[in-house]
Design a protein around this nucleic acid. Structure first.
Lengths: 178, 178
DNA sequence: TGTACATCAGTGAACGCGCGTTCACTGATGTAC
DNA sequence: TGTACATCAGTGAACGCGCGTTCACTGATGTAC
């Protein structure tokens, strides 16, 4: 049955939220269109009223979750703490570490969206970075983000919780953010 | 037709080599059993004479490519250079950066194999790491590996070659290895 | 060393399940009067 | 403001393709004598 315009907009939002979360948890390939729709409280048949294809959903979900949320970074040290926390490892929200490999071989649209998101992240970290010149601070901001993403990727691979925790704390300790 | 014992062993090796390379390039889900067999110069029907299932192949291929190859690291600076090179980005050999996300939600066998491989990598990098105590050197070794893996993940996501190159050089410059 | 036969690695057609996608239908929305 | 009707978001059954897996068959290997 037909639903109101507002309901349509909310349904679309719920589909994107559900998709983004499921994709981060299980990757693009291991999530079905029917699962996404079900998680959004709908049936799978209506999916194609919102998106042209599953690929289009992937593009839209990544764009949705990386949307210009101004990464304030008022407190860089706390940001690093929470990024490199066990909670974030076990309930990942960062698409770079959760989906990096798949995005690298994904559509040009997804890669472009992620690239723009990374640029914003770099710019957000620069003010908190050390270095005499702007160039040095930018270089250190990129290195800091690389360390955080790499540590999260490794911590999520490792099956020994002690080692996984050690990776997170070692990476945190190596960062100049405070 | 039946083939000689040596041929069987070589076929198995070729299946594993082909699988490892295809998995790194395209991920586990986007590679079919038939493609692996074809890349190994065989037909798909014979696959189940070598492995019980595609999952078993994934386990075996990861074990195969991370096998206790003594990571000599005689020259840590050159190791970092080549890891963070454009050639390695465009023709990835490191399973941590190429397959990290998928391994994190993979079988316990694959995660265990990768964990043991990471332990060996850490131990290999420790002698080249800075720090007054063994603890500090270990911590720095882990941070170094995190930076390398994270930079490679980010460089492979980014669709702008200039930024991708910048990520690699920034990460390289931040490492104390020389 | 040579011959006869059993074994079994590899072949390729076929199977069946899962999933992306389509479509006829339903009934609430929202517009025209 | 109320009523009649056209629109169209969502439903759920069905389709069809791709891929993992199976299986009857082939013919070279390797063993027994």
């Amino acid at each position: 049955m037909k639903v109101s315009r507002e309901q349509v907009a909310e349904n679309r939002r719920r589909i994107l939220d559900a998709a983004a979360q499921l994709f981060r948890q299980r990757g693009f390939e291991n999530v079905t269109v029917a699962e996404v729709m079900s998680a959004a409280g709908l049936t799978h048949g209506g999916f194609y009223g919102h998106f042209d294809s599953k690929d289009a959903l992937i593009d839209a979900a990544i764009a949705h979750e990386t949307h210009p949320q101004r990464v304030s970074l008022a407190n860089p040290g706390r940001y690093a703490d929470s990024y490199l926390s066990r909670q974030h490892r076990d309930n990942i929200t960062c698409p770079f570490s959760a989906l990096g490999g798949e995005v690298a071989r994904g559509s040009t649209a997804v890669r472009h969206t992620m690239t723009e998101s990374l640029r914003r992240q770099i710019d957000a970290v620069i003010p908190a970075s050390q270095g005499a010149t702007a160039q040095e601070r930018r270089r250190n901001a990129i290195a800091t983000l690389s360390t955080m993403v790499g540590a999260m990727v490794l911590a999520r691979i490792v099956d020994d919780e002690r080692l996984s925790d050690e990776v997170l704390t070692a990476a945190r300790a190596s960062l100049p953010l405070s």
